[in-house]
Every structure is written in C-alpha cells, then in structure tokens.
Design a protein around this nucleic acid. Structure first.
Lengths: 300, 300
DNA sequence: GCCGTTCATAACCGTTGCTTATTGAATCAT
DNA sequence: ATGATTCAATAAGCAACGGTTATGAACGGC
C-alpha cells in the first residue's frame, strides 16, 4: 500500500460514495467523468483494494469502501476544521458576497445591515455581477455567498429563497401595450426582446419564457448584461424585456413603463452558496443574513 | 483564502515547522530546497497569511503558524489513521522487511521467530538486499522495515541497535598475515581491498576505514555487492576485505581466513524504519521484533 | 574581512491530471 | 426482440504543475 495518497483522491472518493454515480459525482466535482474514473482506479491502486463494485450500470461500495468511508470523511472534516482555524486564528475571515446587479442597493443592503456590529471579525467584500454570470461567482469560486435569481446551472449549490416577485414587462412608453393595466405572457411572445448574454444559458432561457414558447421562437432584439443597459435599450425602442416587480421602482426612467404579467409563475431571489467549501465565517454570515430575511414579501 | 490546499503542502509545512530549516526539512521530504521554498510560499498564498518569518539565515514560525500547526498535525494524524484503517479493515497488513545480505539466516530469523503465531494478521514479506543499497529499501520506500548496518545516508530514519560486532579482516589463507592472531588497522591500509559498489557511498567509505586513512588512499582491488562475492574474491587472492565477526561463521570456506582487528570501533546492526510512513501493522511488527532482540551480545 | 551557510530566484523539464471523442456493455421501453 | 438510452472504460492530446539544477544575495561565525 502506498501511503502517498492525495487529498484530491479522498475528496473524489467521498463524492462518488455519496452519489454512487460517476457522472453525477464528476459534475459535482467540476471534472469530467473519465477523470473521476481514472482517479478512483488510481486510489484503489494506491491502497491495494477495491472500493467500489461497478458494473456498466451501477456503482456500489464494497464492504471495505463502506467501512473506510467514515475514516476518510473524518480526514476531510479535520481538514475543513483546520482551514476554518486559520480564519479564526488570524482573526480575519475574508468573505466575498456576490450579488446580481440590481439587488445590491435594496435586498443585499437589508440582509447585511448591522453585520459590522454583530459579526465584527468578518471582513466582507461585496461584488456586483451582471447577467453574463448568473451563478454570481459561485461557479468560478470567486464568491463564497451569492444573492442571485434561479435558475443556476452550477451543481452542488445550496440555496434559500429570500424573496418572491412576480413578472413584469418593461415596455417603451410609446409601445402599443404600454397603457394596459396588465398583460398575459402570450401577448408578448412575438415582441422583439432584450435578453441576457448567451453565456447565461439556462438563465437566459428562463427570462425568455422559453417554457411556454413551444415552437414560437423568440425574436432577439439585443443583448444586455445589466438592468441599466436593458432599460436603456427599451427606452430607445429596440425591444421589450421581462423583469420583476421590484425593478420598476429601482429603474424607473422617462422613456419606459412597466406592466404586470399576470400568468407567469412567481420568480425567486435566493441566497446561495456551494455546499462544499463554505468556511466557518461564511457559514456564520449565511446564518446572519437568513435571520434578516423579511418575512413578508412586500414586492409581490 | 483558497480552500483547495493539497495534503502535500500540509506535510511540507509540518516538516519545516519541525526543523525550522529549509535544507534539513527538504532532505527529510526527499525534495530539493527550492521546491520546499516554493511550496511554503504557495501554501502561504493559499491561506492568505504568512506562516514563517524568514531571514536569509533563520526560519521561525509566526504566531499564526505556531497556533495553526496543531490543527494541521491533526489532519495528518487523521489521515494516517485512515490509512491504517484500510489495513485493519481489509485484514491484510502487507509489510515488507528488508535485510542486508548475510543477516537473514541468523539475526532476522531470530527477530521474526514466532511472528506468525503472535501477529497472525500481518503478512510479512522479507526481501534480501545487497551492498548496492545499504539503506535496504528504506530510501526508495520499497521496504517498511529494514535490518541494516549503519551508516545510512537516508534522512528521517529511526534506528535501534540490535547487535554489536567487532571488525574482522577477511584474508586469503595464503596471505602473509593470515596466521596472525590479531591485527591493527594500520597494518592493512595498503592492502588491495574488496569494496562495496560505488552506489553505497558513505557506507562504502565506512567499510574502507576512510576515517583513519588521512592521505593513504585505499587501493581498490574489486567491487562486490554480496558477502558471497566478496569472500569468493578474497579466496581467489584478488584482495582482502573488512567485515564483522559474525560473518566468519556464516561464510567460512576453504581458501579464506578471518583475523580480528583490535583497534576499530564496534560496528552496529540496526533495525530501522522511516519515521514517517510507518503503518500501524509495521509499528506492531517493529515492537515485536525489538522485544526479541537478544540482550547479550554473543558475537562481540 | 572573509568564508560558509541559508533562503530566494531563474530556467528548464517530465509527469500528471485534465479534456474531448469514442467504445462497449447493460438496462429499459416499445 | 429490438432499438434507444445510459452508464463506465478507453484513447489520444494538451496544459499546468512540481520538481530539478544552477546561481544569487544576505547574514553570522571565525
């Protein structure tokens, strides 16, 4: 048995033992399936025993794997504790909180209010993200905690809903529907649309109402990465856009108007983080922020 | 702070914190000094704080480093325990015991006598080594435990003396000094000598009595990697060799004779292992073998 | 004042761990 | 049955990293 096992292999073992599925586990680890396959075989080679029974269609722990797993998890826990200890000892937990543009002034401010007084040992950096990365830095690991709008296509994310809002159409004031008190989504599907950049993938689809189009392709008028750019384009009459109720207050401006869309499901805003790699300080901050979530939903 | 620390860096940190000297620590880790230097800087980068204060001439732990060290050691201990657990769980502790040629039949046999009965869960492999590797597999990691003769130039080795022997000259029966009852080393320094292969380095120097030569270079008649080859060469009159008292019994043969050298310091035989990377099973075996070390030194 | 020791820097190189593309086997649905 | 699908394993190529040796700069002991 080779005693030079890398932590990497142990983490992979833990992940596969959890999912019992190479594909899923590999996604959670942000690596490809063959890479995980090779890594597990390598680990088994190192310790000299098989850890998984695998057929082409199922993966299960061997007796040894099952019994060894707690030991491995103990190592990983201990490591986590050691990393947390650095922050505690250094008295400087640097935490990066990302937020989607448009939510900082309002909701984030609320959630972080008083944090300096209550959690003085945390040093918090807030980073604004635009629509080109709807995971708000969680995918790249640039942020520890994120205030975002689902859907997010990064696996392994924990999220708690902190606000609910209804859909609203943002129209040029001169638009033929601008005077309406409310709209149905079907009335808007053929309008030229301002959408998020292509890198937003699922998120862009979501805000294009792709789910109800069924063959009626969206006509994309332009791309915008911020609400600022979006409303500007709408004001110039380039197209319309879909957004949420809270935005009408924040981005009100001369040339545009907002009209509620009555038949779309509610849209959520969530506080999210990667379930792995959450430091002790970040965990405290999450707890604090969640304790400050407004219980009523004034914006809905 | 980046949470993706590798175990490697933690081990390096532990080593440097122990030695507080890059060179020594790097040797113990079997890497070069610049590699360790880079690794420590990398670790400090990962966690975002300095762990060592270093001038060009001294290394010391920072406050953070000192306080963090126990946490790191806890991780490494936990890892060690997990690796031991594999053996225990699999019920198969494979342990490789190396021994220097010539010591297997006798001393090793004694130390391992009854081990099957007393430690039945251990599966022990014994591997004979010749003089080309005086570290007896410890350097390469091929063996867990070794029965060897100092000096060994592998750092990080723990060793316990298990036998003491005096020097003996091995001479062709026809040699002019063959009839002497005893000899002094100075009488032999100019004799053509059978020595260990060059790869034995320090060890070869030791058995050439380099320490007392002071300008009288040894005349190397031939190289031999085993006692078998050595005594054969002596019998053929190619040269003489230095060895120890116990060998006269084991390698007695027609054409050679052994004469005690009275003014050389005692030579040791040790049970040795790498202080790191000793599995639980191997530790048990070491303890067992040490309990069987003969207290008297009959060969001396 | 000089020499030796000690850590840092530079340039280079091999290994390894990852990627995508593909194969082949087993399961499921029709 | 058979075809579609879902899995893990294999293959081939590539980039990054961890290591090496060689060298440099600063401090301490004689």
């Amino acid at each position: 048995m080779n005693r030079d096992v890398s932590l990497r292999l142990l983490k992979y073992f833990d992940a596969l033992a959890t999912d019992l599925n190479y594909r899923k586990a590999s996604e959670r680890l942000f690596i490809s399936q063959p890479a995980l396959s090779a890594a597990i075989r390598q680990l088994e080679g190192h310790i000299g025993h098989r850890l998984f029974d695998r057929t082409t269609h199922s993966v299960s722990l061997t007796d040894l794997g099952r019994e060894w797993l707690p030991h491995v998890r103990a190592v990983l826990r201990e490591l986590d504790a050691a990393l947390d200890a650095v922050e505690t000892l250094a008295g400087s937990a640097q935490i990066r909180v990302g937020y989607l543009t448009g939510m900082g002034a309002d909701l984030l401010f609320q959630l972080l209010d008083g944090v300096q007084k209550n959690l003085p040992h945390l040093s918090i950096e807030t980073i604004e993200y635009d629509f080109s990365d709807p995971s708000v830095g969680l995918g790249s690991g640039a942020c520890d905690i994120a205030l975002l709008r689902p859907p997010v296509d990064v696996p392994g994310i924990d999220a708690v809903v902190v606000a609910r809002e209804s859909w609203v159409a943002c129209l040029p004031r001169t638009h033929r529907l601008a005077e309406r008190a409310e709209l149905e989504i079907s009335e808007l599907l053929d309008e030229p649309l301002i959408v998020a950049p292509a890198s937003a993938r699922q998120w862009r689809d979501y805000w294009m109402a792709t789910d109800v189009r069924a063959g009626r392709p969206a006509s994309i008028a332009a791309e915008a990465a911020t609400y600022e750019a979006e409303t500007t384009l709408v004001a110039r009459g380039v197209g319309i856009s879909f957004t949420t109720s809270s935005l009408q207050r924040l981005y009100a401006r001369p040339g545009i108007t907002f009209v509620p869309i009555v038949d779309r499901p509610v849209s959520y805003t969530s506080l999210a983080w990667r379930s792995d790699r959450l430091s002790a300080g970040a965990r405290q901050l999450v707890r604090y922020m969640l304790s400050r979530v407004p219980q009523t939903d004034p914006a809905l």
